[in-house]
Design a protein around this nucleic acid. Structure first.
Lengths: 191, 191
DNA sequence: CAGTTATAGTTGCTCAAGCAGTCGTTGGGC
DNA sequence: GCCCAACGACTGCTTGAGCAACTATAACTG
């Protein structure tokens, strides 16, 4: 019963050793396990550092996405598309961050349905306080763990997986300049 | 204001182009962006497939961890350690899955504080129905996206990052055989 | 221009997860 | 053997996020 060696699993490509005795030793399972655990580990590290500055991961992502956008602002919908939040989720995060003085809402002049979330001066300051440590964390736990070649290979592989799997969430404010689009590599682009 | 070119960020190693005009173009940000988006993309794909079989991601992880363990069972605490759930979280997931007939609780004979979560026959069947498609998804959106060399490089990099960053959650039932431990690569091991 | 449809944002409801506190059990120190 | 600290599981409470319903505005169609 414990020897779970079941079911005819279709194997399209055979890049791995065939002699598998247990489904859970399947290298594909191992592969996702690695990716997910790396993600979980980094998330935990980052969250700890962000928490020191009174930010949750989503709040940090929100304020970062806003701060990198022209005018430090984004329409609520675009913010939702860039983050992996629903629009109602964005409403609530912005509620909290507005209450904490990090953001403000600003009416959109052209479209009275829309409103912008804008980073306040206090928000920018908070981000300034948080970012250096965050970058250090990235270097300490991620990029610094590998020599340049290995890192490049890793990032290349990730990019391909991302491009393939990342659900189409092409977002962004309407008036981004072309070079800004080109720069926004890790944003939710590339269909 | 939009040109967020701030703060003296310490750069330990310079594996990337120095000429950065905007903090958010920082290759370290891009790197985590890639990893996180790849994870998010894969998660979304997997969740969709799992949902077809009436399983959430955590439920799938729980039942998988149990099914790969000797006797298809694990003590609640060990299950919590292997998944990224708190013990109360595990209590509730097992509650739900027990209600759905996928798991049962079994009293631990040696220690009356502990109880095992055990996969039922229905649970094993559900897993059998779910796994092939899941493996196909992995191949389609992850491992199949790269040629063997690139995949190996990706996994190698991920392994190092995982080993560095993954928070120490050494778990597992007490009586795992050594070869089983060796096989459990993607489990939460390695100090 | 009127009527319909689509879009932007918010709100009520539900649910999943963590924290802290509780209860029963175990094991170590004396 | 008794006491107390540690442990395992569970429960109440809070929080955060999504879905669906709703309102207001915009755009489209004839």
């Amino acid at each position: 019963m414990s020897n779970y060696n079941c079911c005819n699993i279709p194997r399209v490509k055979h890049w791995y050793d065939e002699r598998v005795t247990n489904v859970f030793d399947d290298p594909r399972i191992t592969a996702v396990g690695l990716l997910f655990e790396a993600h979980a580990g980094l998330s935990a590290r980052f969250n700890a550092q962000l928490e020191e500055h009174g930010l949750s991961a989503v709040e940090f992502e929100v304020i970062t996405r806003l701060a990198r956008s022209p005018g430090n602002q984004l329409r609520m919908t675009d913010l939702a598309a860039q983050t992996s939040l629903s629009t109602s989720g964005v409403t609530r995060v912005v509620d909290r961050m507005e209450r904490d003085g990090l953001l403000t809402r600003r009416a959109c002049p052209n479209d009275r349905r829309s409103s912008y979330a804008v980073v306040t001066a206090a928000g920018m300051q908070r981000l300034n306080e948080t970012l250096p440590g965050h970058l250090q964390m990235i270097e300490q736990w991620f990029t610094g763990q590998l020599d340049p070649d290995a890192l490049a290979a890793l990032l290349d592989g990730l990019r391909r997986v991302r491009d393939a799997a990342h659900p189409c969430a092409t977002a962004g404010s309407d008036d981004v300049s072309p070079e800004q689009v080109a720069a926004t590599d890790n944003a939710t682009r590339r269909h």
